[in-house]
Nucleic acid binder design. Structure first.
Lengths: 225, 225
DNA sequence: ATCTTGATTTAAGCGCGCTCAAATTGTATG
DNA sequence: CATACAATTTGAGCGCGCTTAAATCAAGAT
């Protein structure tokens, strides 16, 4: 696509780098070269060169041998890409009937090809949604994020009741499995038990009791009711 | 099988070249370098180099200083791109509410980003359509084209009645204007008059009489009733 | 304070698609 | 037939994003 939608030197590769750096810096730390490279399926040396270019374009702030963070400009582009990705995911799910574990791949292919008008039209059709099918927040056009009171399920005391708001993974298999267990955003649950020594987590859903591993339970975020 | 049709080297640029060459060779002639370059917004020298590469990849047959035609492989890819383009156009029009003169640009941005599953889902949602909003035929998955009895409006004798089947242009302004005059696929019309010396063409539509220039009338294809 | 180790950057090079400028080819014309 | 002209191709070079291999740096262990 590159030179067709590329008036300002902002092409697919650039957007994917910014997207990855945004996600890696969510926890407050800098994104290091190796992690970026791995997420993009590229060698660290390749990523290193690209990062230098992104820094020259003032899209990231790069501290050699330390890591990278986004500049305001870079963050704006990253948020636009993430907004589009999540809007497309929701569109694929609600309008086109794809399962929630299928949408990530297709959305990835489309996110950088969207025009402004397409983004806006999807947003309207979906009623200006705030979350993607997995519950991730959809950034607004101005780059701000909707309010959320999401808490990690495993941080709650046994017996807590709440509603699942987010399942934080892009692993298709895990999503499919959790969906089949009735664990997805919007579902009311009660945390029944967390077995010691990394044992199973037992959850009450409208359809009955479910036990899953802690690695999966860790992905679930709820709003306490 | 998948080995011979390996899409590894098939990127956006390649698909756009094949698409253009397909359209330029519709009239039976070879596509010459300058025309291809112009349609793609590229210099003839750039196109010449690219054509040589396409020939090496066996996607086109190139006769130096003469022109290019598609090989069966190249035609297959071109038809897939065209199918996707037209499916997307119809999807944008029918599902997302875009006007028929708006869809070409957005479809161009999306056509090479579509996944197979997306193509198939759109096809289903639209009921396996045979034409895009402008009336162009949508190639089937196997590369065959639906039947059509389209005849140039201007080839008909005065007084002929028929149904508009295709308006053959991607010029957004012309499409918008013709749409406003009630001239678009599916509309029943009668050819009332063709004034001499390149004069206006008068057409009876369900909404009344319309007179347009021959340059526009030339774009209209009908099925005689 | 040096050494070792792993992360990171540099160096050299490749394929792609493009540019401009120069050389070449095909063809229409006198 | 020679020639002029337009179309086409070639050549040189560029920016991008990538690779592998080699050099360099940071930081903890000794």
């Amino acid at each position: 696509m590159a030179h067709y939608t590329d008036p300002a030197g902002v092409n697919d590769a650039t957007l994917h780098y910014l997207d990855v750096i945004y996600r890696l810096t969510q926890q407050g730390e800098m994104a290091n070269t190796t992690d970026i490279a791995e997420k993009l399926g590229v060698t660290p040396s390749g990523a290193s060169v690209m990062l230098k270019r992104l820094a020259e374009r003032k899209l990231i702030q790069l501290v050699p041998y330390k890591g990278a963070t986004l500049t305001p400009q870079g963050r704006r582009l990253a948020l636009r890409t993430i907004r589009r990705h999540r809007l497309v995911e929701l569109f694929l799910h609600r309008v086109m009937g794809f399962a929630w574990h299928e949408v990530d791949d297709h959305a990835h292919a489309l996110e950088t090809a969207l025009t402004d008008a397409l983004e806006d039209r999807m947003d309207e059709m979906l009623g200006h949604p705030t979350r993607c099918p997995h519950g991730h927040l959809i950034p607004r056009k101005d780059g701000s994020l909707p309010e959320a009171n999401d808490v990690p399920l495993l941080s709650l005391p046994i017996g807590s009741a709440g509603v699942i708001r987010c399942v934080d993974t892009d692993n298709s298999d895990w999503l499919k499995y959790l969906g089949e267990q009735g664990l997805y955003p919007g579902v009311s649950i009660v945390l029944k038990d967390i077995a010691p020594y990394d044992g199973p987590v037992t959850i009450q859903t409208p359809e009955g009791l479910v036990a899953i591993g802690q690695n999966l339970a860790k992905l679930i975020y709820v709003e306490v009711s």
